[in-house]
Design a protein around this nucleic acid. Structure first.
Lengths: 243, 243
DNA sequence: TTTAAATGTCTATTGATATAGACAACTATA
DNA sequence: TATAGTTGTCTATATCAATAGACATTTAAA
């Protein structure tokens, strides 16, 4: 963990340091001891005052990632960065399945609406054709991993929101409606700062980074069945593309 | 662009606002006028003082995204994002080629060294075997798009840095050394705040976001020929994965 | 039991961030 | 040529972020 923090960027040093330590933890940098280095050592490493390090550690403690014990040190409570493979067979639950005990997809809201230009383009519909929109949050072991807005052709998938609410899985909901299999056709990936909706849905703090995917799934005949914009906490997730 | 900014989170209000405006610009929110709303309007929208908005706009002006003209308003200068497809045949030059007139890869430095554990794992070498390391910056129409550190098996690709310096392309450099074709095997994608090296190499400002890829290319027999860590300006680039 | 090493708490000071208000300077247009 | 609307600059004040140092408290090991 080399490299210095940056001053006068509008991002407080304690927040930059918190982000770096969080990342180091999830990269397994402190696995041998199960503890973060002492505050004085971190202060030296980052070239800041011990109090600044303490602010960073306090923020991580607030997130439940570390726990300070007077006299002993600062213990690591939790260390995750989920790996998310993107392939033709990308599925949220099975993709992350082995890395977490429990995986849930929660339906926040849904509605039927007319496809705007963008949705129509991705789903290969005409503008104005009916689509189902679903807002979802996906959680691994109770921790929000991503929030998504997904669109589906309404004529083909009436009843999808109900099935999703029951099964908490797109794959299973599709299966209930007679679509046994589907494949990931296209994924676009960008990154940005979290906006208010992200901060609320993913339990982030302002200034956090989100990875954003725009993905289109098709059935086995290449007909689009889903278009989704998903937003992932960059601290908790990475993507892997295997070609 | 509704929603309020958040206070006392370690991220300065002016930076949150700059991020939001940058995003709104790239989403085309102000395409009709080609201008950002007046400072007083933005201040009202975000619920902050006009001076805070001015700090945000100053940061965006520094990035070259807007330009303030006294008496008229704040004009939008730039709102583009290069698309970078990731496939088995991912190549920097041909991938972005159509979206820019000129595409160059510049060799900053190179050296021969012994593979550390990570490089050895990716290139399927034994730790300590000789590898060539190259630091490069890739530019589209003179604008830095990414900087990369790449490793190659030294025994197989002696002379690669020279060939790259001449051709400004990995594909062509490989070809000169007798490797006619290669494929992208694996790509990992994460995101983070830009560090000092990124800021210098990519001409960014502190607080900017970088998309980070760790990629491995193999020859047609599946033998690794390159491992590279590339850092892209998130404001200028997006990735597309076609499956 | 002592001691070293770690976190916890307090005071004080400096610089960055944010607000508030007033007014100057410039642009486009009525 | 006024005038409304916009950005630019200045002063002043309050709060947050960061540094600095001193010392208390707790833990684990010598």
């Amino acid at each position: 963990m080399a490299g210095q923090v940056q001053r006068q960027t509008g991002v407080a040093l304690w927040r930059q340091i918190a982000d770096r330590i969080r990342q180091a933890i999830s990269a397994g940098a402190y696995d041998e001891t199960g503890m973060v280095p002492p505050e004085t050592v971190l202060a030296l490493q980052f070239g800041v005052n011990r109090h600044t390090v303490r602010s960073a550690l306090a923020a991580l403690a607030q997130e439940g990632i570390v726990r300070a014990v007077q006299g002993r040190g600062t213990l690591i409570e939790r260390k995750e960065r989920l790996n998310f493979p993107i392939t033709r067979r990308t599925r949220f639950t099975t993709g992350i399945g082995e890395q977490a005990r429990e995986m849930r997809g929660l339906l926040l809201s849904h509605s039927e609406e007319k496809a705007d230009a963008e949705v129509a383009r991705w789903l290969k519909l005409r503008e104005g054709e009916p689509v189902i929109r679903m807002e979802t949050v996906r959680k691994a072991d109770g921790r929000p991993v991503s929030c998504a807005t997904a669109w589906f052709p309404a004529r083909r998938f009436a009843g999808l929101p109900d099935a999703y609410k029951r099964t908490e899985s797109i794959t299973k909901a599709f299966a209930e409606l007679g679509l046994a299999d589907y494949v990931r056709a296209t994924t676009e990936i960008t990154a940005s700062h979290a906006d208010d909706a992200d901060i609320a849905a993913l339990e982030l703090t302002p200034g956090a980074i989100v990875l954003i995917t725009k993905a289109m799934n098709t059935d086995l005949e290449g007909i689009p069945v889903q278009y989704a914009i998903s937003r992932f906490s960059a601290d908790r997730v990475q993507f892997t593309i295997e070609n």
